[in-house]
Structure formats: C-alpha cells, structure tokens
Amino acid sequence: MSRMNAWLLDFGGDCRAAVGARELLHLVDTPVTFAVPCTPEYCRRVVLWQERLLPVMDIATRVGAQPRKAPFLAVIGYQRQRGEYPQFGALALSSPPRQLAVNDEQTCRLPDESGAWPELAISCFEHQGAPVPVLNLSRIFSSAPHRDAGFTQGIAMS
C-alpha cells in the first residue's frame, strides 16, 4: 500500500496545488482574519494562530485564477534552511485538503495557464490527468512582494 506523502489543496475552480504531508499543520474552518492595508491583493489578510500573526496567501489570486470563496485556512510550516526553527503561514482553501500518495513517475510540467507557477512551485506531478504544482512554501512566504504585485493605491473617485 502506498504511503500518503502529500496534501492536495483546492484553491477553487481548477486551481490546485500540493504540499508535503508534514508541511500542513492545522486546518482552520471559517477563520477570523484581519485585513492589513497597503498589501498585495493576493496576501491582504492575517490570521491569529497560537499567538502568531500569519499571512494568509490566496494562491488563486496570485496565479490569476477567478477568486472563489475560501472558507478554510491551511496552516503550514516550513523551514528556510535545514535545521532552522520552523516558520508558519496560512493558505486560503475552497475545500478541505485530501491526502495523496505521489511518486516520481508522476512528475510532469507545470501548468501553462499562469506564468506565476515557476516562481511558486518547486516541482509538479500529474494527478487524475491534470498537473498539480508542489508549492515552494519557503519562497512564497519568505519573499517580499513584487513591485507589480497589485497593491491598491490608486485614487478612488467615488
């Protein structure tokens, strides 16, 4: 029997990705989150979790997919370097994650639909005929926003 080694994350629509089995720490149902001004549209909110304020990353928005309801948060942990104390973040999900068993034979190319995936993913595998990027959590949560990240700072005329 295959060993479950990944979590399949549903960001809404056809937007999916995966993280390692040990990277997902906690699933929060209908979380209370807080907006922070002058932040990129894909990471506009924080959630209080175990006395930490975690950024809530909206991967669907980041890859340009249609915004969907995201009633769940996956709290994830990652290390920037081996042996370092873990860092934490949160991913907005449309539905609860599912466990998968993935092996090297499933390796495939990243989805073509968004140019953002090469920056967000460390690899990709095929699942049920579709590519599933594996998120590079360290890069996603440890990098400052791009200058073209879509901060709302225009002039609203009404």
Binding site: P37, T39, C43, L53
Partner: peptide, 25 residues
C-alpha cells in the same frame, strides 16, 4: 506587537507593525 509578515510588506508601507487587541487588529 507583531511585524508585518514579509510576504505582504511593501518597503514603503506606512504600517510599522500589528497589534492584536481583543477582537480587532
């Protein structure tokens, strides 16, 4: 007081930090 997480912090933000207080931030 918490720092604004690096993934959401613009270098020129006027927000210096975040302070949870009861049911608000």
């Amino acid at each position: 007081r918490h720092e604004v997480p690096i993934a959401m912090k613009d270098a020129e933000t006027p927000i210096l930090g975040l302070l949870p207080s009861g049911d608000r931030l």
